[in-house]
Design a protein around this nucleic acid. Sequence first.
DNA 1: CGCATTTCCTGGTAGC
DNA 2: TGCTACCAGGAAATGC
Length: 278
Amino acid sequence: METVRRELAPWLTGREVVEVELVAPPGPKYADLARALGRRIEDVRRRGKFLIMPLTGGLDLVAHLGMTGVIADSAPDERAAAHLRVRLGLSGGAPSALYFIDPRRFGRFLVVESGRYASLPTLAALGPEPLDDAFTPEAFAAALARSRMPVKAYLLSQRPVAGVGNIYADEALWRARVHPLTPAAELTRAQVLELHRALREVLASAVAAQGTTLSDYRTVRGRTGEYAGQLLAYGRAGEACPRCGTPMERVVIGQRGTTFCPSCQRLPRGRGRARRRA
DNA sequence: CGCATTTCCTGGTAGC
DNA sequence: TGCTACCAGGAAATGC
């Protein structure tokens, strides 16, 4: 999403939305989109995986690409045209239209009052940006201490830190040698520090590579992201761990496929509450 | 409030 | 070859 934001910002900032074509059926995922009409895009920001475009008149245009959504600056080819959901006509020179194509329909493209995210609970409760100074090891430790969910599931909730999806969660947990089923509150201080560092490194590297294309993801100009070639854990179940050679394993945590090394990433034992000694 | 479960959806692919 | 079944998963809705 950061790659998409960087391509969109110089193009969209200052443009007026002169046409709103909602191709998808109206619904909460496209709530109030027509209100963008006649307003100028003041900025292109990002919070986690949400794109936030403040509009003149106290509104925000909010986009989320879901699994397979693509924002493009040129018309989709015949194959992708079947999945066109939104077209925005823009003032100014070419490219003068934005296309939102979303085959699996998990994406959103809606207008809300500025900063009013009640209809987007994940955005409303989003943790700090991982590459911001506010994301300190202390803040991360305090967030993790609040939950006994498996740390992998808690990361995906977007609450301890923003923007970590399934791929980057697996990569960071592997780097930090943390078992994905470890209850968040049971990470040791050393593990919190390792995971904090790993999250920042993985996300910074992925942004430098312009993201991870496994199949659908494309930048606004149609390019692929190249971080897939640097993945060390995600999607490698059955292969040797790059660090120790042990076969990597796959489990399901919170409905998400999760790959980890059973040798490098050990579950702590016997540190839970509710334990009594005889 | 916190957490688990279910739902949305289609392209790709395994299996027959 | 052509069919069916199943899998992928981000976030919201629903159910305790």
